[in-house]
């Protein structure tokens, strides 16, 4: 992977590079460089398969990490591009024109993390959640326990029996144990 990251480094200003395995590396890039880097990887370096696009919420640093994982099948290797964006103004340019499937990922990220991709097809359409009014649920500050306690109620539960006591009471009622 070093040959690839070296080549990329001569063309673009890259951030942290983590070589995880011989066939997997993660590289940080600035948001405004993402499009140029990923297009270069697709068109020149043969990373034609968009494996996934997802987000990680680093709430402590006030940032979202977007991970674009692309795969080169001929060379059997992957590179993950990490893009850090401001958590308060979570907006990023879409890549749905490069990979049509990216529109689905972007729609999900808008709903689950509140990250906007202006111009992405059906970006404001509900994807999984229907009638959701709370903060995007995959953000770290969404309290699942509190939500569950406020939304659902505890089932009173069934009457349960300790088998030995139950059978004794049933078969020999009134006898002292």
């Amino acid at each position: 992977m070093k040959d690839l990251t070296d080549r990329l480094g001569t063309l673009f200003s890259l951030g942290d590079i983590t070589e995880k395995r011989d066939d997997l590396a993660f590289v940080s890039v600035a948001p405004d460089l993402l499009r140029a880097v990923i297009t270069h990887l697709r068109d020149v370096e043969g990373f034609t398969h968009l494996v996934l696009l997802t987000a990680v919420d680093w709430i402590e640093g006030g940032q979202f990490q977007l991970t674009y994982l692309v795969h080169n099948r001929t060379r059997a290797r992957d590179i993950g591009l990490r893009v850090f964006i401001d958590r308060e103004e979570a907006t990023m340019a879409g890549i749905h024109d490069l990979w049509p499937t990216a529109a689905t990922y972007q729609r999900e990220l808008k709903e689950m993390f509140g990250i906007d991709f202006p111009g992405s097809p059906r970006i404001d359409e509900e994807f999984i959640l229907e009638g959701w009014t709370d903060i995007p649920p995959y953000r770290r500050d969404f309290d699942t326990k509190k939500y569950a306690e406020e939304t659902y109620f505890h089932r009173p539960g069934r009457e349960t029996f300790d088998p030995a006591t139950h059978m004794k009471d049933k078969l020999y009622p009134g006898e002292a144990s």
């Binding site: 983590t18 995880k20 395995r21 997997l24 494996v51 996934l52 997802t54 991970t67 994982l69 992957d78």
Partner: peptide
């Protein structure tokens, strides 16, 4: 601290886990 991606070929295609 770290991140990785593991993939395999399931009956429907590429299945993978991205773990941070």
């Amino acid at each position: 601290e770290g991140e990785t991606y593991i993939r395999g070929e399931c009956s429907r295609g590429e299945y993978g886990y991205y773990l941070v």
